[in-house]
Simulated scan of single mutants.
Amino acid sequence: MEDQRWTLPRIKTLIGCLFHVTYTVEGIWALLKHHGWSWQQPARRAIERDQSAVELWKREVWPTVKALRRLAEPGSPSRMKPPSR
């Protein structure tokens, strides 16, 4: 079955083809929000979902991925050197 989701890039392409105007993806999102549209979430989980594989990934892979994240270091986000004392 073909993917039939309306993604922002697809909406951008459609608007460009129909009206010969160009918007950024962010601009498309702003237009949709302005007209009362919101993102949608599936009402149910996919039939193909393998819950045991998800739990295994959470237990074995996620801790490794999480550990690789850079921890915050103390300091200033400024690029200027601190004054010497």
Rank of each mutant, 00 (worst) to 15 (best):
K66V: 05
T22K: 08
A46Y: 04
P82T: 10
S78C: 13
R44W: 03
G36W: 05
T24E: 06
V54H: 08
E2W: 03
L56Y: 08
Q4P: 00
V25T: 15
P42W: 00
E60G: 04
A72Q: 08
R49Q: 14
W29Y: 09
L8S: 03
D3K: 11
K12V: 04
S38E: 08
D3F: 06
T7E: 02
A46D: 15
R10C: 02
L71Y: 01
L68F: 05
P83L: 10
H34Y: 09
K12R: 15
P9Q: 04
L31F: 05
C17V: 11
S38D: 06
F19H: 05
L56M: 09
E26N: 13
T22I: 03
K81D: 11
Q4L: 12
P82K: 09
P82D: 06
D50L: 06
R5L: 04
W37G: 04
W29C: 07
R69L: 08
P42N: 06
H20F: 01
E2F: 06
R45Q: 13
S78P: 03
S78R: 08
R49K: 14
R49D: 15
G27D: 01
V61F: 05
R5P: 00
E60I: 09
P74F: 07
P74R: 12
W57R: 13
K58R: 12
R5S: 09
R85I: 07
S78K: 06
L32R: 02
A72N: 07
W57S: 10
V25E: 15
W39D: 07
S78H: 06
E60K: 13
S84H: 11
T64P: 00
G36Y: 05
T13I: 04
L14V: 11
P9W: 02
S76E: 11
I28H: 01
V21T: 12
A72Y: 05
R70P: 02
V21D: 01
S38A: 06
R85M: 04
R49Y: 04
R45A: 14
L8G: 02
P82C: 02
H34I: 03
